[in-house]
Design a protein around this nucleic acid. Structure first.
Lengths: 285, 285
RNA sequence: UGACACCUUCUUGU
DNA sequence: ACAAGAAGGTGTCA
């Protein structure tokens, strides 16, 4: 080994949040943690600043805390868990399966699509359906999260193992509520990439909502890509025959056409989970 | 130029040692291999340098040794690796600083202009100078890479954060060799764009070379724009009062005049890093 | 229209 | 620390 000792690893989102002195320690917080955010810095000050900027949330005590330079190993906070506070699925209503015996309860990763595990797609899928059918009581179905404007809130997410490689396997997750009968976790159809997953997740969420008489839906996703596709680029692409500004083809045309179709007759508010954290930062800066 | 055609994957420690053209091939050598050492580079030269530096053997008698080693270790190596042969640096002697979580010692990517980080330009710049001054011994200075024609080889590069926006910050890099005392990393003066950066990088390289009695210089850059300016358009612009064929002004006149001035009394071979890979392709297509 | 650069943003994985 | 999947843009010239 014989590495150079210097350096501070800031972990803004991970199993624990804080500054670590070795890559190994840092890696332990971060490895396998979905949408982890971490970075190495030459000074503690910069490391702390990074955490302040990227962890989305701090404890009220955090601001002062970060300033005291002596504090190395910061406490364990799970930002997301707090922002989302009430109803957000800190982890999963998704059927738990083998794999990745999630780490600790508190800091459960935002995304635990255990069920996406390839080898079990069929089984899981089937089980999910049975599950939904079985518990299809009115009481359950009406148990949506609804915002002040009457929009039903749904969280969507896509994941893709080995993204970019030919063995890639992608899956989607749709979350209406804890153990909600409409929750979905399924494999992706067609091209297996992270983005096809995110897009299909949104599409499935919408179709599922429609089937249940919902006509106002708030989709929360961390895929800025999907949001941009729908809110910024889609109309233009429909006009210009799906040409990128760079001249190439729109890679996700097929999925986007389906999504666009699903969107008809549904009022949708798109919410970026990322944006939410950013907004939150304004409390601190 | 790494983006489209993919780069070159150097495997220094793995099932086989060598340069590979796809991530899949590289992965095959490396996956599950204890303490594998590998990295992607935009050029074969850099890939070979990485292998030379990390494959365990070596050091001391660099030049000749490297040649044979790359041959020996490169079973599947594409022709290029052998054709290009020499010993190009993996990368930067640039002072490391914050940003982009530099990797360990030597094998940073071609562009790790950590030092370009805005807030620290001054400091970094100062440090770079001290650094150079401090180690300014004859022994070091004579340690240039020289081609068969007696041209000293230097790599130049420019970078520009937020290129095209008003917050843009540009910087230059000049690389004569690993930890070479003449290496430069500095902020750009004047307009902050990618092209001013590339041009100023070349100019600085020439001036630095001149100060050290060099009169034959091979400049390797991936800026086709800079090369075209100098080798195709400059003479014409000097004649026609810096008019574009479209009638407008030459945007980079100021920097190009300085570059032109620096070029006097210096024999220069301009080499496009891009062209090199392209040439290579002709072996296969 | 082409070419070479330079970036911004987001995500997924090891 | 590394990889890829995806979109948007400007800097510049012919």
């Amino acid at each position: 080994m014989g590495k150079k000792a210097g350096g501070f690893y800031a972990v803004a989102r991970g199993r624990s949040v804080g500054v670590f002195l070795t890559w190994d320690e840092c890696k332990a917080q971060v490895d396998g943690f979905t949408s982890a955010r971490y970075k190495k810095f030459p000074t503690t000050e910069e490391a702390n600043a990074f955490i302040a900027e990227h962890s989305g949330v701090q404890h009220s005590s955090a601001a002062t805390h970060l300033k005291s330079s002596s504090l190395r190993y910061a406490p364990k906070v799970n930002p997301t868990a707090e922002i989302m506070g009430l109803q957000k699925p800190s982890s999963s209503g998704y059927s738990a399966s083998t794999k990745k015996t999630l780490s600790i309860n508190s800091a459960a990763p935002k995304r635990d699509f255990s069920s996406l595990k390839v080898t079990e797609d069929r089984v899981i899928n089937k089980r999910a359906k049975m599950d939904r059918a079985a518990s299809n009581s009115r009481a359950d179905l009406s148990n949506f999260n609804v915002d002040e404007g009457g929009f039903v809130v749904v969280y969507t997410d896509g994941a893709c193992t080995k993204n970019g490689r030919k063995a890639a396997k992608a899956g989607i997750g749709v979350w209406f509520g804890n153990s909600h009968p409409l929750n979905i976790s399924e494999p992706v159809e067609g091209r297996q990439t992270n983005n096809t997953a995110e897009i299909q997740a949104a599409e499935r969420a919408i179709r599922e909502a429609k089937l249940n008489g919902i006509n106002k839906l708030m989709i929360k996703t961390d895929s800025q890509f999907t949001i941009n596709c729908v809110t910024k680029w889609l109309n233009n692409w429909k006009r210009n025959n799906w040409r990128l500004s760079s001249g190439g083809d729109v890679k996700n045309k097929e999925d986007l056409v389906k999504l666009d179709d699903a969107m008809q007759n549904m009022e949708i508010k798109w919410v970026s989970l990322c944006t939410m954290s950013c907004l939150f930062n304004q409390f601190f800066f």
